[in-house]
Design a protein around this nucleic acid. Structure first.
Lengths: 350, 350
DNA sequence: AATTGATTGGCAACCGGTTGACAAAGGGAA
DNA sequence: TTCCCTTTGTCAACCGGTTGCCAATCAATT
């Protein structure tokens, strides 16, 4: 390889389209222009301090002039690093993920990383497929509310840095919102409004967060001497909420927490179309404060999740793991917050 | 390279984490196991028909046994192909993209492609950055309602296959919903309800689709002898819709089309909180039929877009371009459809 | 001025596939 | 049986970076 003339496989990236004649500049081109060895170019560009300031300057100038861009594949081949992190959400149509995605994406762009997004459509199987596929090409993975088993997540985490959002898995980094704050305020509020029996419409069995929310609600209700029961476990969708209506009416509770806003909206609409008035006959609360939760009549009271922070924080922790920096202690869980709107009111008959 | 012992850079992908000892199997491992040359393995795995059925079988068996997975970077280096396509949406928090994303993702998974998603947060600059970044690593790009100029899009398209959704750019493949059907039905309906003056709250100036919708509305109104005017051009968000309220009230129209549902919802809520009753005093129509458009009171009447089809179709066309198959004639534009709900009614005083 | 130690740059061997050119092997026709 | 045409497998040169090792360079110390 003494001369730098290109021969052989001409299927290079830039030559792919008819319009573009020359292929993209390489470090070899820069080396020629700057009068140094390619390896020096490589070092100047990716190992700050390894070459003298003078040579580095010459090289960056040359790179600039040629409008050089690293070939990420060539870099990834020996190093395995791609400057990409994956994010898998359980359902892309759930507005709760909006801000998680945005948070992660913003954090990623800021550090010159690319975010790769996939969804599992609430299926553990699809989730695993997506995770496996991504694992080969990303530096780290974020799983938002995964439906996978702990073992599967542990297995993924043994191969690349993994951070889970709103779930706790032994040995795997996680970012979880602190439900306590919001729930405490919510239950206190309900108690003050005369409610004494509360029910909870749970999300999927596999949802760790659904469990977590229930535990939190149960604990606070006990504290206030209120009765609390789970009425159903259903898909975390508007339709899932609808299907909880019968169970809710059968119970004696005057206030209902739903696992998330989607379910709360579904439940409310179903009950209303059956003739119930909200909140006079029943108070309803959701979780997350998603887009659209204030469109309903009455607007939904909910416990807001710090979705954006969760995304940002998850990305940061992936990066820490990738860069092998010890993050020190776990960062504090960002708090939830009670948002009172129109779907909660005084208990019927209180 | 007569022996296959690994030396040198040990930073390979699988060795990145402490837990995993051996690095991933390569075609060289398969070659040894199957007793053939590595290049034969390569051909057997990616050039069907190039090797005899018997050898192919031996090789696939060996690959199976080793649980082999191609190294996408190694493949991408000489070929430039990554089995990945990019999708850039103008705003990830706009529910209208839900189904576009899902459609593209489903189509991609089905063809064993990976979808890479990014958003531009309604900024042409961010969009260009994202597009440039993606361009290096994807086989093709889908731009949904891009805010970029025609020239910039053309430039991108000169490097890799590009398909735009809901926009038309000379020389660039595009997938556009047929607005005519829905608009025709909607205007006919309004005419039948006694409306004679209509206004349009436009989206961003750069939005080709906003123009398109307006032209369509204008044409149909002319046909019915109705008056039609544009009252404002605002961001395509709930807040943008809110800000249109004053302009709408100042006009004489008894029915308003908004560029999309987000704006329609914002407008409706703003007007309602100012004391107007919908649809008695004003009829409102949106476009797209997004998640949440039926949560409002009254539920929004809208012109539904074939969002899922747009995503699927865009992906297909990218793949056609990548594979150089001539798609023949342009596929027909998927139609829109009028969805009548509660926000439209008889014209005031009619 | 000679010796020593720290910087800096170059060489070459990788990473793991792909592919053009070519030779060997196999099959059919003459 | 011989010759020719396919089919099939091998060789080797890539794709474009990264990095361990070593030699050359340069400054500082004695």
């Amino acid at each position: 390889m003494t001369d730098t003339t290109k021969a052989g496989g001409d299927a290079g990236r830039a030559a792919a389209r008819p319009g573009t004649a020359k292929s993209a500049p390489t470090i070899y081109d820069i080396a020629v222009l700057a009068g140094v060895n390619p390896s020096t170019v490589s070092r100047a560009l990716s190992k700050p301090g390894r070459v003298s300031a003078k040579t580095a300057q010459k090289i960056t100038d040359a790179a600039q002039e040629l409008n050089y861009q690293v070939n990420v594949f060539a870099r990834a081949l020996p190093t395995g690093r791609t400057q990409t992190v994956g994010l898998i959400v359980s359902d892309i149509t759930n507005p709760a993920y909006f801000e998680v995605i945005r948070g992660a994406e913003t954090a990623a762009s800021g550090r010159d990383y690319t975010l790769m997004l996939a969804e599992s459509a609430e299926s553990a199987e699809l989730e695993l497929t997506a995770a496996r596929r991504m694992l080969a090409t990303v530096d780290g993975l974020i799983l938002a509310s995964p439906r996978l088993s702990d073992e599967e997540i542990g297995l993924l985490a043994s191969k690349k840095p993994v951070v889970v959002i709103n779930r706790s898995v032994a040995g795997v980094a996680s970012v979880v919102a602190d439900t306590e704050v919001g729930v405490t305020d919510a239950v206190r509020h309900l108690a003050a409004m005369g409610h004494t029996a509360i029910s909870y419409v749970a999300g999927p069995e596999r949802s760790w967060m659904s469990q977590r929310r229930w535990e939190s609600i149960k604990a606070r209700c006990d504290w206030h001497g209120m009765q609390a029961t789970v009425v159903a476990s259903l898909p975390p969708t508007v339709d899932g909420g609808r299907r909880a209506a019968a169970g809710v009416r059968a119970g004696a509770a005057t206030a209902v927490f739903c696992y998330n806003d989607l379910m709360a909206i579904g439940l409310m609409r179903e009950l209303q179309s059956a003739g119930l008035t909200i909140p006079e006959e029943l108070s309803i609360l959701g979780f997350d404060n998603i887009f659209g939760s204030d469109f309903t009549t009455p607007p939904l009271s909910t416990i807001k999740s710090p979705l954006h922070e969760l995304g940002v924080s998850a990305f940061r922790r992936v990066l820490d793991a990738v860069d092998q920096v010890d993050a020190g202690q776990e960062p504090p869980a960002p708090p939830t917050e009670l948002v009172l709107r129109g779907s909660t009111g005084r208990a019927k008959g209180a």
